[in-house]
Amino acid sequence: MNLPILAADGAANPVSFQALPAITAFVVFGVVLFVLAKFVWPTIAKGLDDRNHKIVSEIKAAEDARAAAKAAQAEFEKSLASAREEAANMIKQARADAQRVADELKARNDQELAEKVARANADIEAARKSAVAELQAQSAALATEIAGKILRRQVNDQDNQRLVQESLKELATSRR
């Protein structure tokens, strides 16, 4: 098969210069350049710039938010530690107060009890003394009476027994 390499059918010499394609290329590219430079590239550049600014501002906002969250967390942890310490102190104080109150109550109760015991003992002693004194008085009176009766008549054993019984009755009557 015969393949004509350079003398292609209807084709121009590959390295020959033709004015029309060159001028057309120059003019068409000029028009394309003008229109693109006027309407397209500014639009694309603005779109890319807007997005860059948006991304940068979003990243900055996120970093600020993270820093704020970190600061808030640190503040919270600090507050939490302070609250824990305060609570521990309060519990310690409350325990001390409770212990102090309990000790005071115990001391007061002991004192009151001791006072009551002492008062009761004093009452008992007074009652005993009173009873003894009254018994002595009664005994003296009874003895006096018995002696009076003895003096009025000779008493035998039966009389004596009877007198004692009577005296005891009188004593019981008088005590009532």
Binding site: P21, A22, I23, A25, F26, F29
Partner: peptide, 12 residues
């Protein structure tokens, strides 16, 4: 693939 076209572009 036309040298003439490319010359027009290279002129710019």
């Amino acid at each position: 693939a036309s040298l003439s076209v490319n010359i027009g572009l290279a002129a710019w």
